[in-house]
């Protein structure tokens, strides 16, 4: 009880300080705030440059995708590495490689035993999963022109495999995307992103400067080469995110044994 009282005191004190500081914030939705417009008399905000030039530089109408994969390519590269590292950390923490199944009886496989309670769910998900996967691929590919991109499409693709595991069994889902293949796919995603970022160095340009790959893509201008480069990078992100999301779920639901499941 004493801990709760002191926690309440600390939280109220911190909250009061934060609420006092909030009164110095720019108004909500102010287009002339420092973040949106820049300090008066100083340099304009970076976002002004992005809005004015992103379309000319990359010919990608979705400004978020253009900034994510081109201007802030370093940031996104290492965010993807963080996601990959988190997936590998879960393997290190949870994965049980011994084959002793003492204590926990293996869950009956409904595909064999015929679990009649799951018929409606199973049939519905069998219809839904291909639609989810096609939409996820569309989200990855159409991120240039509409909301979407590698992160969203990757999470959706991973969620479709999680849906297979929930509606049938983890063994069934692992039959579609086995442990070795999702680890390989996660590594391949990073390899695509980082390897593609290294390519411009070959022709003497900067790391992640996709505009230099004009000859490789066979485009007229550098901005279309950047647009195609963003697409390749998004595919790399989507592969890593898909496999890491499914790896996290597979390990958590089966306590690292990768069989049985929920």
């Amino acid at each position: 009880m004493n801990a709760k009282l002191s926690a309440t005191f600390a939280v109220v004190f911190t909250g009061a300080v934060l609420l006092y500081a909030v009164s110095d914030f720019p108004d909500f939705g102010d287009p002339r705030s420092p973040a949106n417009h820049g300090v008066s008399g100083g340099a304009p905000s970076a976002s002004v440059y992005y809005i004015k030039n992103a379309y000319h530089d990359t010919s990608v109408p979705n400004l978020v995708t253009a900034i994510l994969a081109d201007y802030r390519g370093y940031d996104t590269l290492f965010e993807t590495v963080v996601i990959f590292t988190a997936g590998m950390a879960i393997f290190a923490i949870l994965r049980v490689l011994r084959r002793d199944d003492s204590g926990i009886p293996a869950a009956p496989d409904p595909a064999i035993d015929g679990d009649h309670h799951r018929i409606v769910v199973g049939v519905t998900c069998r219809i839904a999963v291909p639609l989810v996967q096609i939409f996820a691929l569309y989200v990855v590919a159409h991120g240039h022109h509409s909301p979407g991109g590698g992160f969203q499409g990757g999470v959706m693709l991973g969620a479709s495999f999680i849906l297979i595991a929930l509606s049938t069994s983890l063994r069934h889902a692992l039959g579609r995307l086995s442990e070795t293949s999702f680890i390989r796919l996660a590594c391949l995603g990073i390899l695509i992103y980082a390897g593609f970022a290294f390519l411009p160095l070959v022709v003497g340009r900067n790391f992640l400067d996709y505009g230099a790959l004009r000859a490789l893509f066979g485009t007229d201008g550098e901005e279309m080469a950047r647009s195609h480069g963003i697409f390749v990078v998004e595919i790399g992100i989507a592969l890593t995110v898909t496999s890491v999301m499914f790896a996290i779920f597979a390990n958590l639901s089966s306590r690292g044994r990768l069989h049985g499941g929920l």
């Binding site: 979705n62 978020v64 995708t65 989200v139 909301p147 979407g148 991109g149 992160f151 969203q152 999470v155 959706m156 969620a159």
Partner: peptide, 10 residues
């Protein structure tokens, strides 16, 4: 919209 999309899936 992009952030909303991500939050809806994640």
């Amino acid at each position: 919209v992009d952030v909303a999309f991500t939050e809806a899936t994640v």
